[in-house]
Structure formats: structure tokens, C-alpha cells
Amino acid sequence: MGKYVIRRIGQMVIVLFGATLILFACLFVLPGDPVGSLGGDKARDPAVVQELRERYGLDKPLVEQYGNYVTNLVKGDLGEDYTQRRQVTEVLGPKLQNTAKLALAAIVLDVVIGMLAGLIAALFRYSFWDVLVTLLTTLAIGFPSFVIGSIFQSQFAVKLGWFPLISDGSFNSLIMPAVTLAIIDAALVARLMRGTMLEVLRADYVKTAVAKGLPRRTVLFKHVLRNSVIPVVTYIGISFGGLLGGALITEAIFNWDGIGFALVTAIQQQNNPIIVGVVTYGVAVFVVLNLLVDLLYAMLDPRIRLS
């Protein structure tokens, strides 16, 4: 187990550095001077450009710039952004919280709605509810989030006025983006839950338990649920990392002030330190969660050997 963890952490570090190196290389070959302008229609004074290039080491070769980034990253320093010249960690801090709020809300919805729907569908197989869940989950997967977002905005924000059209960070404005972000994952969780439940229900040990005359409730909670939850937990763990991708577009639709939205804006402004910062966070969260999920999985299911 210890060896396995060490090896996995090693792989994790490789992935993190590989991903940021790729990003660095891409940003490096981008046309346009990252400190050449600030937006608007005026070019920056060449003297200022020169000063900033020196200050941020932009005149150095790619390898050296990347080296500086890594050295600072180890110290927890992501550098200064190019417009306001503030610490990237300070700029992204509140945005990271906002994204976490959105992602957590989405996960809660995934778990509650997804697992409940899957459970009902599996327990009452082929009933009206089963068909309904199946139909809805299939439909949900076919709706891109910007279509769902458009429907929500026009119906619930503009027509009915239940929610603000544009997020202001309040709980009320969290609802539409959270539901949008959660819908597809909730559908997938429901499908997964239904599938594993059916499989477990057919398993020999469940049949044995029932044959032994154990009460239905005991069988359900002690055997079926516990074993069905494993793959669902795995999936949710992995999807949390993937939520950053979904958050990118959800935040853009609803103007939610998170890191996904910050990324889109930073890309427009070519504010490289912010782009690198967001991707660093995103990739780090993704690999760490993957590792945790694998470990958790191994602990929940002793049949899996870690080698």
C-alpha cells in the first residue's frame, strides 16, 4: 500500500508538471506581447513594456521562465497578474471559493437527486417511475449546459423573476447555475446507481441473505446499498475534478464569479499568470482527487489489489 501511494504521488507530480509545461509552451508561442497592452485601443508605452518584461522575466527563454514558475510554485507563489499587478493567489482566492461553492452545491444535488432516482428506478424496476427516470436521464444527457442555461434564464429569471438573471453571489443566484452544472452528472449518477443496484440485487450473497429470511430492510441497507454505493462514490469523486470544465461554461452562462469565468476573461486579456494559475489549480485538484478516489475505492472494496 505505501509503495503504491508513493508511486501514485510520483505519477501525480509528473502529470502536474507535464500539464503546466504544455500550457507554458502554448502561451509562449502565442502571438502578441502579454504586457504589450491593457485592452482598450491603445498600445502601451514601449518604455513601460520594456520595464514590465524585465520585471516579470518575459525576456528570458522558455525553460528559464518555466523554472522560475516551478521554483515559485513550490513556495506557494503564483506570481503577479499583468493588469493590476496583484498577487495571483490573492486575485483567485475569492473566486476559488465561489467555484467551490458552486461545485459543492452541484455535488450535493448529484448525490441527492441522482442516487434517489437511481434507487427508486432499481427497486421498482419496469414501473412507471423506472421508465420516467430512464427517459429523463437520457434526455438530460442530450441537453448541452448552455441550452439548459438559456431555458432557465428565459423562463425562471426573465419570465417568472424567481432568480436574478445575473449572479450576485447570493444563495438565490446560486440555484440556477448549480442545477445547470448538476443536471448531467445527476443523470449519470442515477443511471449508474440503477445499474449497480440491479447487479447487486442479483448477486448470490443478496439472494442468500433473502433466503436466510433476513428482513427486507436489513438486506437492503446492509448488503445492497452498501455495495451499490462504491462505484457511485468513485464516479462522484472523479466528476468533482471534471466539474472545473463544466464550471467554465456554467460560470460563463450565469456570470458566476469563479475561476472558470476568470479563465475565460484572462484568456481574452492574455493575462498569462491568471491562466497558468487557474490551470494549475484545476489540474492539481483533478489529480489529487483521482488519487483519493483510487485509495478510497481500495479501502471500500478489499477485492482490489493495489499493485
Binding site: L30, P31, G36, Q268, Q270
Partner: peptide, 11 residues
């Protein structure tokens, strides 16, 4: 193009 690239293209 995003602004900075647009500017670079014009320059």
C-alpha cells in the same frame, strides 16, 4: 482575435 493578439497583428 482577442485584444492583445489583435494589437500584435496590427503592429
Amino acid at each position: 482575435l482577442p485584444f492583445k493578439e489583435a494589437l500584435a497583428k496590427q503592429q
